[in-house]
């Protein structure tokens, strides 16, 4: 069942997300979004995903916020924070509400939060295999690491390629040579 800390985090996350959407001032939105990411990172840890939590804190709340701030620094004059909100565009909002409702119709069919093997098909033979055999196969105790580098190493290779592609892409877009 939901714990108070989880509930509090979820409320915080939704609230910061809404604020991000409504704040007209980009800098304010970025700062709130940084809070949102941090909330997410804490939520991952509460949900027993420490690897994801750490990554989210470093990458989501850290790197991402820096990137946003750097962008802002290069593109807009900083005139101090403003708390004005954008005008809500009703047709767009209605479209999104419809989308949310459509997604919500699938939610009751999902396994309940915290449902274990038997009720949650995701806990199938693959996840069982990982937990049981990872150490024997790879001699790494952290199963997440084992999966990351061994079983799904090709994904990780892809992930590295994504970062490389993004780096080259940024250079290309900003028209910088590598050594210029």
């Amino acid at each position: 069942m939901i714990t108070p800390i989880e509930a509090g985090l979820l409320v915080f996350i939704v609230a910061t997300a809404v604020m991000t959407a409504l704040l007209r001032d980009v800098l304010a939105a970025i700062i709130v979004f940084g809070g949102y990411s941090l909330g997410m990172a804490i939520l991952w840890i509460v949900l027993q995903a420490p690897d994801v939590g750490l990554t989210e804190a470093a990458v989501g709340a850290g790197v991402m916020t820096v990137l946003f701030l750097a962008t802002i620094a290069r593109t807009t004059r900083l005139t101090g924070l403003e708390a004005t909100t954008v005008d809500v565009n009703l047709p767009a909002a209605a479209l999104c509400v419809v989308f949310v409702l459509a997604v919500l119709t699938t939610v009751p069919a999902l396994p309940a939060v915290g449902a274990g093997p038997g009720e949650n098909p995701a806990f199938g033979e693959i996840s069982e295999y990982y937990v049981e055999e990872a150490y024997d196969d790879t001699h790494v105790e952290n199963v997440v690491t084992a999966v990351l580098v061994a079983y799904r190493g090709f994904d990780t290779f892809g992930e590295a390629t994504v970062v490389f592609a993004a780096g080259v892409g940024v250079l290309a877009v900003l028209r910088r040579g590598v050594f210029e």
Partner: peptide
């Protein structure tokens, strides 16, 4: 099978 881990072993 990449890295010798087949699909039944959770490989790609």
């Amino acid at each position: 099978e990449i890295g010798g881990y087949g699909p039944s072993q959770g490989g790609i």
